[in-house]
Amino acid sequence: MLTETKPVTGAAIKHAIENRDGRMLSSFYADDALVRVIDRNNPPSKPREVRGRAAITTFWDDICSRAMTHRVDTSITEDDRMAFTQSCAYPDGTKVFCIATIELKDGRIAEQTVVQAWDE
């Protein structure tokens, strides 16, 4: 089943994330997009880099397949830049918090940087 391509907006990102729709999320990215992840295991000097829509689709499919809830709390848009915060919880009560910045090019996500922290 193909997901209809929708404009990249804060509302569309919120809908896709909260509904764990990896296909919709991956449709927001340019073919050559880059997602950079910074966390305890991937420090700023060596962030995880996910390049290209195929790899980003795999990334989102993995996240969306996990038994957890996702809530987008805040989103901000200015010209071709966006930012949002996301709160997640696993069934065992473990919480994750994420903040992401996005740069759009020709209406698609060209670069995204994600900083996340988990309960330990």
Rank of each mutant, 00 (worst) to 15 (best):
I76M: 08
G52A: 05
I99Y: 06
S45L: 07
V72T: 11
A54E: 15
R48M: 10
D61Q: 13
T77W: 00
D80R: 12
I102V: 15
S87T: 06
P43C: 03
F84N: 09
C98Y: 08
T101M: 06
S65C: 04
D73S: 11
T58E: 12
D92Y: 13
D39W: 01
S87G: 05
R71T: 09
K46M: 13
A54R: 10
T101F: 13
A54D: 14
T58H: 12
D73K: 04
F84I: 08
A54T: 15
N42A: 07
V50K: 05
I102K: 00
T57Q: 12
S75T: 11
I99D: 00
G93M: 06
A67Y: 01
D61W: 00
R81E: 10
D32V: 03
K95E: 09
T101W: 08
E78D: 14
I38M: 07
C88H: 01
C64L: 08
T77S: 12
D80W: 03
R51D: 04
C98E: 14
A33D: 02
D92V: 10
M82W: 03
T101V: 00
I76P: 01
T94A: 10
R36C: 12
A33S: 11
I38H: 07
P43V: 07
K46A: 15
C98Q: 15
V37G: 00
R81P: 03
D62T: 09
I76T: 15
T74N: 10
D92M: 06
I38E: 07
L34M: 12
S65W: 04
V37C: 04
H70G: 09
V37T: 13
I99S: 12
P91V: 13
R71G: 05
I99G: 12
A54N: 11
D79K: 10
I63E: 14
T74M: 09
P91I: 01
D39K: 03
C98N: 12
D73L: 09
P44G: 09
E49Q: 07
F97Y: 12
I102Q: 06
C64N: 07
A33P: 03
A83N: 02
C88G: 09
D79P: 00
D39T: 01
C98W: 07
R40E: 13
F97R: 08
D32R: 08
S87F: 03
N41Y: 12
I63N: 08
A100G: 06
W60I: 06
S45Q: 13
A33G: 10
S75G: 07
R81A: 12
F97W: 11
A89N: 05
T69L: 02
I102E: 08
V50C: 06
D73G: 10
P47M: 04
D31V: 14
S87C: 00
I56L: 03
I38K: 01
L34I: 10
D32L: 01
R51V: 09
R71Q: 14
S87W: 02
T85Y: 01
A83G: 14
G93L: 02
V50T: 13
R36V: 11
D32K: 08
T58Y: 00
D32S: 10
C88E: 11
V72Q: 09
M68D: 10
N42F: 12
P91H: 05
D73P: 06
R81M: 11
